[in-house]
Design a protein around this nucleic acid. Structure first.
Lengths: 241, 241
DNA sequence: CGGGCAATTGATGCCTATCAACGGGTGTGG
DNA sequence: CCACACCCGTTGATAGGCATCAATTGCCCG
């Protein structure tokens, strides 16, 4: 982590992401102890928090914003994940003690809580509820990836994009933002990469959504006109049923 | 877990899967304590260990054999995972306290070590090295799924099958079995399901591999004649380069 | 021996990648 | 202030890979 990142010192007890963070397991005085072990870091848009191949050093918890993970495997620059508040960054590196991908800040304002992995283990020890919460967050990550595997196998391009938009909308809603007026943080290339389709296809499907009056699009700003229709597309039951 | 499953009482200290199991972190006397908390269960081929939708009760560690996980999501019966010795079964259920998929024993002889999740947490709590190992195994699962997402996006049918066969071969080798004479535990349908292609395509590609003298196939028994060629196919550099 | 499922092989069509051209916005330099 | 370049996004034409449908063969088990 370079010096250009900005530290701040908000405490866990007043954190907006508490409900989604693994530290929700803790109450005082343990919460303060935990809070004191963290370094809160504001990451400018476009900057990497962890880098593919670097030795595992710290684990990061996303407090605010959005991070996109990429790997150089398979020759291409492949998007592997999207991380939002409460998600863990860097845990993929525990297996081989090296981060397997690069994670870059994508939103206007991005904050992570950093903790050295060794310290992390120490704090977990003796706190079964925290271990449970950690396991739960890891389980969530695992299920998220499994979900993506299933999506890749079983959906066509239109369903993929519908699923992506529904998921984005729900993410926004869960964080008290508008679920219908959305500013995309990702380029068409990022989206296509994430979903395993080309930018041309992304563009074409977006156009079709506009024709169906499901979406209104102006560059990266989009308005969902028919969330329910989008859900039907996602489930493969559009337009009938 | 039904009564038709057979229990045995081998101890961890003499387990063949030690090197791949999270309990490798432990030494005596903690190992015995851990070992005592486990129930070892022999699962007959075809029988389920965990069932989709059932409440999270126990976590299982695969000691021997092979397990295939399926989910009913996306209308189809979708293969989501293959578990071998050292892998954890049921951890996907920690997030929502319900197993998200069904895991069925696939090999001739399958053994799992069962531990109630609450007991599991208690045992972890006092042992930072065990927590580390647990995190490491979870990280491995996560990376395995991420790897699959990348594969789904970036490879064609032939590469998928080559990757599958190379991976199967390496799994066998790592467990002191022949890496070239392999008896498949999965049907063409299972394989196709796992890789996201149809059984017809699986069959066709297998035939091509035979024509290339890369494979010899007799039903579920196959012999890898050219593992290196298979690797080249997997990496997309066949036949040239 | 026959029923039924698994696997193979063939014919066809669709989805989406690929290649290509174009429009619009932004930034830079003259 | 305008011209130009460049990148991003859109739209069109084409081709190829794989799914789908269909028919046949092989195999296991009663």
């Amino acid at each position: 982590m370079t010096g250009s990142l900005i530290e701040n010192d908000k405490r866990c007890s007043e954190c907006l992401a508490r409900g989604m963070c693994m530290a929700r397991a803790l109450i005082e005085p343990q919460l303060s102890e935990w809070s004191g072990a963290l370094t809160r870091i504001t990451v400018p848009q476009g900057q990497a928090v962890i880098k593919e191949g670097a030795p595992l050093d710290k684990i990061y918890i996303v407090q605010m914003g959005c991070f996109l993970s990429h790997t150089s495997e398979y020759q291409k620059n492949s998007a592997v994940n999207i991380k939002n508040a409460g998600d863990l960054l860097g845990v993929g590196g525990i297996e081989k003690r090296r981060y397997p991908y690069t994670s870059v800040a994508a939103a206007d304002c991005n904050v992570v809580c950093a903790i050295p992995y060794q310290k992390f283990l120490e704090l977990l020890a003796g706190r079964p509820r925290l271990i449970d919460c950690f396991a739960s967050v890891m389980s969530r990550e695992l299920n998220k990836q499994t979900e993506r595997v299933l999506m890749m196998k079983n959906t066509n391009a239109m369903q993929k994009l519908a699923l992506f938009l529904v998921s984005t909308s729900e993410n926004h809603t869960a964080r008290s933002m508008s679920g219908t007026d959305i500013k995309l943080l990702m380029s068409r290339a990022d989206i296509g990469d994430f979903l395993g389709i080309t930018i041309e296809t992304v563009s074409r499907v977006f156009s079709q959504f506009e024709q169906f009056n499901i979406l209104r699009i102006t560059g990266k700003n989009l308005t969902i006109l028919d969330l329910d229709g989008l859900r039907r597309v996602a489930s493969g039951t559009f337009p009938v049923n």
